[in-house]
Structure formats: C-alpha cells, structure tokens
Design a protein around this nucleic acid. Structure first.
Lengths: 139, 139
DNA sequence: TCTTAAAGGAGAATAAATCTTATTTAAGAT
DNA sequence: ATCTTAAATAAGATTTATTCTCCTTTAAGA
C-alpha cells in the first residue's frame, strides 16, 4: 500500500519522501476521511516536526496526482480520501462521520440513464452521490 | 417571493428585517449560488453599511430555518441556494459555475432503488447528486 | 560522493467565518 | 401613537483553515 505510493510517486517523477509516505499512511490508517488537522495530529507522534504547510502542500500534490481525493463537507474544512476509484459517500446528519458507499449496480444504472437522457449543454465527467442520513449502529 | 420570505420568517417567530429581505433577495436575484462575498457585494449597492458579520449570521439563520440551503464546493467557501426543494447540482470542473439539476424521474428511481436495496446500518434522509463536468454553451 | 532541482521547515500572511459588545429596531403591549 | 424589550444589527477584533515566503535540507540521478 505504501509501496504502491512509492511507485506511483516515482512514476510521476515526484520524490519519495518520508513526509509524503507518512501523510498518505496516516490517511489510510485513520480511515475516517480525516481533515488536515487530524492528519497532522496523527503524524506528529512519529514525526514531531513536520510543518503544517508541508502537510497542506503534500495533500495538494497527492490530490493533483490522483493519489487521494478531496471530500466535500458542509463545514469549511477539507477532508481527504485515500480511495481514488469512483465511489459515493454516506454523510451523517448529526455527526461529522463520513463513510464510503460503493455500488456497481447503481453506477451502471447511472451511466446508462445519462447516456439516454442527456443533460442539455453539459458534458458529464463524473457523478457522486451524497447520501445524507443517520448511522444506526454503535455510533 | 420576498413576500413568501416575510411570511415564513413571521411563521417561525423571526423578525422581518430589511437586512434579511435584502440578503434573501440578493441570493434569488444573483441566481448563481453565490458565496457570502458576492452577496455582500450585491447588497452594498442599496445597503451600504450592512456588516459582514450580519450577512453571515442572517445566512445561518436562513439555513437553520430551511429558507435557503448551503451548497458544498471543492473550495473552502460556502455558497447558498434559494431553492429548498430537493434537487441536484451540475458542477463545472474548470470554472466555479454551479447549476441546478432537477429530475423527478431520477428521484423516483432513487427512492425505489434504495427502498429495495437498503444500506446496512444507515437511514437515508436525502440524496443529492453532484454531477461534475463541463458546460458546453457560451461559458 | 557531488550536484541540483525539488521538497520541507518555520513562521508570517491571507481569507472566510465567528465572536463580542454596544446600539438599534421590529413587533407586540400599553 | 408611544413604550418596552427581546431580537437583530454594526463595527471591528478574533479565530481558524489554508496559503505563501524564504531559507535550508534532501532525494535521486550524474
């Protein structure tokens, strides 16, 4: 997983640095679509003097190179997702919990639906569902 | 339209103030899912000394009372939508343009789809599609 | 090992949004 | 019509997430 990242960075001509590995590793390990703050908090345990600016810059670099994705929220903080394959999100309406929702059948349906029913003057590149509601298990 | 707002504010026990009417009016008139800045810019023509804090507070009040909605973006600025009925959005991937997408057939399909195929441990309240792509008319 | 462009560290700067406090006002009561 | 008062606004300081600047360090190829 971290080795995947090594390879992908190298492929793109980007340097493989401990900071980049740590940041990516933290996002994967946390597995909560963390924001920059949570990532920094997690990384500082092992890597006490990583600069916040570095974290933001690395996050941007990873997003630009398609190695992670930004997740939109109602709040004014960005969150980050290590899964780059197209998928959807479940948003809790009472906490800030966000979970992945993967549904191939739905994706197939949507592809066909919008092949038939074109949207005037608009060229679709990607569709993401934001599914809002409440998790009903142990929070 | 502004009169609707008067009534809805009154119903909720909120005062009908010129600021609230102006802010709501600006969002409707601009019709671009504007951010707070654009709203302020538009309002100051008529209402030169409205405070920015007031605008943010009014926006919050309107959102809390279901009179407008927040629109999520990739950027770290909130935008606002005067249409409160459930609908979807088209997001331009090269500009910050956002348009409404209304599709009853799709909504019906989604309702049925998720009635059959429940999401484990999750209670759906609302589903919004974020449709990313490019507008192909005159920008 | 050397070279160098790319990346990181530190902390200042910016921008959106929030908060504080004093003042004003909408709207019901008198 | 005026009075009263809780709610709302103005002004501007503050906070918070993010970006920027500049100098130092380092990854990776020569």
């Amino acid at each position: 997983m971290i080795n995947d990242l090594r390879n992908k960075l190298a492929e793109k001509g980007l340097k493989v640095t401990p900071q980049r590995l740590a940041i990516y590793g933290a996002i994967v390990k946390l597995n909560t679509h963390p924001n920059a703050d949570k990532i920094i908090e997690s990384i500082r345990k092992e890597h006490p003097n990583i600069a916040t600016g570095t974290v933001y810059k690395v996050l941007d670099t990873l997003v630009e190179n398609g190695l992670i994705k930004k997740v939109k929220t109602e709040k004014d903080v960005m969150r980050y997702d290590p899964m780059v394959e197209s998928h959807h999100h479940l948003y809790c309406t009472s906490t800030d919990r966000i979970e992945d929702y993967i549904d191939k059948d739905l994706n197939n349906f949507l592809r066909e639906y919008f092949q038939k029913k074109e949207i005037p003057n608009f060229n679709i590149e990607d569709i993401k569902l934001h599914i809002h509601g409440k998790f009903i298990d142990k929070n």
